[in-house]
Amino acid sequence: MKIQEKGSKIILFTCNWNAYSGLEGAGAEKRSYSASVHPIRLSCLGRITPGIILKAFEQGAKGVYLVGCLEDECRYETGSQQIREIFLETKNLLKLLGYQDNQCQLDFVAAGNGKSFVENIHKFVKGIEELEENL
């Protein structure tokens, strides 16, 4: 069964700049992705905290997908590096809490690249669907 039909939610955190323009690009190019994916735009992905990611899972998210800007394209210079550290810390906590590796992923996309953004989302959603089928 598709994750969408099950009503499961996937939270997508993107930063306001290059990464989000990828999502806008996808919209302009009429590329669709699963309606279970709920994008939340942040001023910079580096400003997220492990607590916020855990909170998404606490509130029932099946997956949290983080999409940031390429390292040398971060508007605030250090955000992409910060999110790597935050991601690793969160992954360690999620592992302890029994979550699977593909339930929280981090990717970086180039500005305005709607095609690769949507492909990444498809891949992430597929991972979660496979996981749910094996439960």
């Binding site: 905290t49 492990p50 607590g51 916020i52 855990l54 909170k55 606490e58 906590l93 809490l97």
Partner: peptide, 15 residues
């Protein structure tokens, strides 16, 4: 206060 972005309280509640 929600110290550490609520991380510790959240994992407590998740448990």
């Amino acid at each position: 206060d929600c110290t550490h972005g609520g991380m510790i309280q959240t994992w407590g509640r998740m448990m």
